[in-house]
Design a protein around this nucleic acid. Structure first.
Length: 258
DNA sequence: ATGGCAATGAGACATTGA
């Protein structure tokens, strides 16, 4: 089973990119973030026509997450989860579903704006609640994958210019500590299980020709429970759709399980 | 320190993102 995550920065604008990339990449499960649309606008029928079922938690203007599954892959939706259980949140940032026997979590972590702000405090609270929930979830589902836009670059090698970024939002010690709390639960960064090209990133600012200069960050991740990490044979960033016309500022990350 | 760009809602420009 091939799984992937992609922050599309508006599914309305990127709908055709998603359909084209599903065909191109042959992924079985695609987790999306930043749909920026209410549920009634989700292109369920268009995706169904192409051979995919969709589960989503959307809202107007901001946030919104989805899991898209290729027909023929077994889905158990009896234990579908929207948002972090026990964490009251107006913002639609998480959806979880059992696909092909694995617990698949699609998550859009808060941006945080800047250390010291109320949004940053919310980001840390959200991360804390996520870790608490995952601790239990991992016991129930030993095969678990947490895919999404984490809005955290875990290490300096995930940052194009670590000096310039030092202490800033997305790389601050508090955020990185929260990331490694997830690792302490037993989750494994699938990308780092394999040899990777230097300076591989998943997000590049639209401005200042950042993509052309490869001035990016690796903030989109696939974390796997030990059982799935063992089964994982490949993890890579696909920069292809970032080169298409009117792209999302993020590139998708893919992991092959088994 | 600020802007650069893109998307949204609204119907000009403020807000958010990362």
């Amino acid at each position: 089973m091939k799984i992937a995550t992609w922050n599309v920065n508006s599914l309305k604008v990127r709908q055709q990119h998603v359909i084209d990339w599903l065909e191109l990449s042959h992924v079985d499960v695609l987790c999306l973030q930043e749909l920026k649309m209410p549920d009634e606008k989700f292109p369920r029928a268009e995706l169904a026509e192409k051979g995919y079922r969709s589960w989503f938690a959307g809202q107007k203007t901001y946030n919104g997450v989805a899991i898209i599954v290729r027909d023929g892959i077994e889905v158990d939706e009896t234990q579908i989860v929207r948002n972090i259980p026990g964490f009251a949140d107006e913002q639609q940032r998480l959806i979880a579903l059992t696909v092909g026997g694995a617990r698949i979590v699609s998550a859009y972590f808060p941006n945080g704006q800047a250390p010291g702000t109320e949004k940053f405090a919310y980001k840390l609270r959200w991360l804390d609640a996520l870790a608490q929930w995952l601790k239990d979830e991992l016991h129930v589902h030993p095969k678990l994958a947490l895919l999404g836009d984490y809005n955290i670059a875990p290490e300096d090698r995930d940052v194009h210019d670590p000096k310039a970024w030092e202490g800033q939002n997305l790389v601050s010690p508090e955020e990185r500590a929260a990331f490694f709390k997830l690792v302490e639960l037993g989750l494994v960064d699938a990308f780092r299980q394999f040899e990777q090209p230097e300076k591989t990133f998943t997000w590049w600012d639209y401005r200042m020709l950042a993509f052309r200069r490869n001035a990016g960050l690796r903030i989109d991740h696939i974390l796997l429970s030990p059982e799935l990490a063992q089964a994982c044979t490949l993890c890579e960033v696909d920069k292809t759709p970032r080169k298409w016309e009117q792209p999302s500022d993020h590139a998708p990350v893919i992991a092959q399980l088994g």
